[in-house]
Structure formats: structure tokens, C-alpha cells
Amino acid sequence: MRRVLLLGLLFVGTAQATDADDLAAALKKARQWTARGQVEVSVFFPPRTTPTRTTNALPAVPFRPALLARNFTVTRGDSEAVAGRPSTRFDLTPKQGAAARWSLWIDREWNVPLAFEERMPDGTLARRAAFLKVNGALARVPVQAVPPVVGLSAVLKAALPGLRLPAGFTPVAAKARAEGQGGTEITLSDGVNVLALIVAPRNVRPAVGVASVRVAGSGGVRFVWLVGNLPDAALKTALANVRQVDEAGLGTFAAPVDAGR
């Protein structure tokens, strides 16, 4: 009986690893190749006047495979057709926290994504992009060099003492805001979801997915915003103990950067 149970657990573990590996292979190929055609893109968060539009390629999703494997359980779903092409659905469920969950449809022949879907923790659709029509061949994607960001976590921790990053999220990029705006923008990622952390001289009005706190800075009063597809309570909890900011260290990352892991 124990052997059967152990074999079962081993099989399940192997199956999960295989699903994650299969998805990682598809995402790796998608860095160089992409399908073209007619894509319907719907965005319900952040809110916009016209949520749905049509384009000729899937929008970019900044997947970070290492973080994704750490923070999400990848499960292979049913075989479904997207724009008439056989595909496999992969479901990404966060292992902890209240992050959004994702579904990706991977073309079974080309092994590249044909559709993405992001849902809030309560199941509400946040974003969706899916091919309606697909051209006959893949198109080459220009390779983008991704400079590594080393030490950003430590710098952020020193710059914003008391900041409690939501479960699974880590800083992956930082850049200075436009000269007229002032401040710094830091991108947090859990592998697929992103949060925007902003240090600014002005506050922002609270809204769905937007939390802010007033802090003391070296040059006077500053404000820290946290924006993203998380419950408001999670956003506020992250900022609850932030009292001051030291932007001197963040200045090292002033140039626009975007690092993958």
C-alpha cells in the first residue's frame, strides 16, 4: 500500500514538474517566435473607457520563469481550440497570497501562446487576449537583451524600511520618473503578475487597486503608491509600516531597466 502511495505521489510530482517544464519551454520559444493574425484584447483592470479592442499580435506578458516556478502551481488543462487551432490550456494558481491567477493556451503544433487570461482572486476577469484568426506561419520576434538587476531587493529594503512586499513579489526593475513628475518607479513581479511601486512628491487618490501612504523623505514629504491587481487590503498591508523613504539608493537604478529572472 505504501509503495502504491509513494508511486502515486511521485507520479503527481513528476506530472506537475512536466507541466511547468512544458510551459517554460513554450514561453522560452515565445521569446523568439510569435503567431500573427487578429487578436481581441480586453482589459478590465486597470479600468478604461473602452475595454476591448482588436490588434494583430498578442500583448506582451513579462513572464519570469524562475519566479513563476517558485510562486505558481502549473497545471495542464483540457485541450481546447483557439482560432481553430488545437491548443493546450495551462492554469497558473498562486501558491500563496492573493495574486491573480492565469490561464495560457499554447498551440500544440507551434508551441507558442495563442491566448492569455488573468482573473482576480474572486474569479473576475481582469485581462484577456486571444487570437480570433491566425496567420499560416510564425513570425520572428526581435530578441531584446535583458540586463540583470543585482541588489535591487536590498536597495529597496533600505530605501523603504517597513515595506512588506506581498507574498511572492520581488522587485525586478526601477527607473526614475519623468522630470516634471519626480520620484521613482519600481516594478514588482511574482513571475507573471506585476505591481507598480511609486515614490512621488504628490499623493494619488485612492481607487480600486491603488493604495498610498505619506512618508518622510530627505527633501520633505513624499508619497508611496502601490498599484496592482491585488485586493485593497493586501495593498494597504504592504504599505502600513512604511514611515520614511531614502531615495538616494534608488538613484542607482535611475535608468529604465527591466530584468528577467
Binding site: 490588434t55 506582451a60 526593475a173 507598480a196 481607487a207
Partner: peptide, 20 residues
């Protein structure tokens, strides 16, 4: 005065990636 929420959403939009 406080900035409108659209200012925060604009930063988040940039972080989402191109095409959204």
C-alpha cells in the same frame, strides 16, 4: 492636490508590458 487615480493606473499600465 492629490493626483487622479489615472496617474497610478498609467504607471501600472507601463509595467504590464506592450500591447495591453
Amino acid at each position: 492636490a492629490d493626483l487622479p487615480a489615472s496617474a497610478a493606473y498609467a504607471v501600472y499600465q507601463d509595467a504590464l508590458g506592450e500591447g495591453w
